[in-house]
Design a protein around this nucleic acid. Sequence first.
DNA 1: CCGAATTGTTTTAAGCCTAAAATGTTTTCC
DNA 2: GGAAAACATTTTAGGCTTAAAACAATTCGG
Lengths: 172, 172
Amino acid sequence: MPAVSDCIDMLDSETKAVETPEDHAEELRLWLRLLTCTTLIEGEVRGRLRQRFDVTLPRFDLMAQLDKAPDGMTLSDVSKRMMVSNGNVTGLVERLVESGHLDRRTSETDRRVQVIRLTKLGRAEFRRMAAEHETWIADLFADLSPKDVRELMRLLAKTKGSAQKSAARRRP
Amino acid sequence: MPAVSDCIDMLDSETKAVETPEDHAEELRLWLRLLTCTTLIEGEVRGRLRQRFDVTLPRFDLMAQLDKAPDGMTLSDVSKRMMVSNGNVTGLVERLVESGHLDRRTSETDRRVQVIRLTKLGRAEFRRMAAEHETWIADLFADLSPKDVRELMRLLAKTKGSAQKSAARRRP
DNA sequence: CCGAATTGTTTTAAGCCTAAAATGTTTTCC
DNA sequence: GGAAAACATTTTAGGCTTAAAACAATTCGG
């Protein structure tokens, strides 16, 4: 049987007339668990990349973006895709050009734009790492059934949508 | 109708006699989506903390750990809980002691150990931030029904367990 | 009891990351 | 055409983060 205060809360939330301090402990716990999972997996992948290939995770991520774009990408594109700041990409690219994994040139048609591509070396090294990386991920998620995976995909898609809407509300 | 190669794969995966290159594209997509969700929410929370309270996310996270431990924690405890390196905590604590949010003292019984606590100021400021933080999280997850939340919690618990097992397999 | 592991923390070196300001380029629109 | 807005990138200053090595204190096993 619901307590009186619960009924009042329900009325409030329906009428939206009064703001009562609502309980969001469940969402908070969900967020912490989501963060834990990501941190756990990310740390594991970071460590394996370092041990097996002596490469950092951000470098790998950047190369992964470029592998999907044979014609190259602009720094802005990369920055949006990776959801990191512009300045971050500048430095990352600098180091990867230095090590011979990336090729960088100024666009012919718009001199503001820098187009970057994987070099032959970069692509070869990335493919080699990516193949192994995929097995790590499979292993990390090994306990999930195909149905679990589908269901998680669905719920995370909903989560992503929800978060994007919330972000847009703040920064329209 | 399944292709012949699929049947062969299924036999292989049952008998475990032959290693065939299996397809783990779904798990990979799941991992990328998980990472996207976390990055999205984390970035949003980071920005709001900075705008509203001029505090960084790591500082907030550290204070959150200490708020749950009135008797204080050792640096190692904090490091494990936050899943970050020891050296990271050292610097973070340094800055928070400097700003008057934390109190740090050497343990009486074990002179290796540093025990840190929130100061009165630290606790007050944290509580103020935490209250608002909770509403942000609620808003970010607003599109999820209570059932969605429960289901996500369950699947992420399973994911966490799976990842921990996988990590333990590599580093026993 | 004492040397050897173990544990807790700090230091070091390098890289990652952000927000904000600065720089150079293109587009817009009067 | 030219000023103003928008865009792409870099720079700056500061903080975060890691792995590995160094240091300090305790515990363990003989």
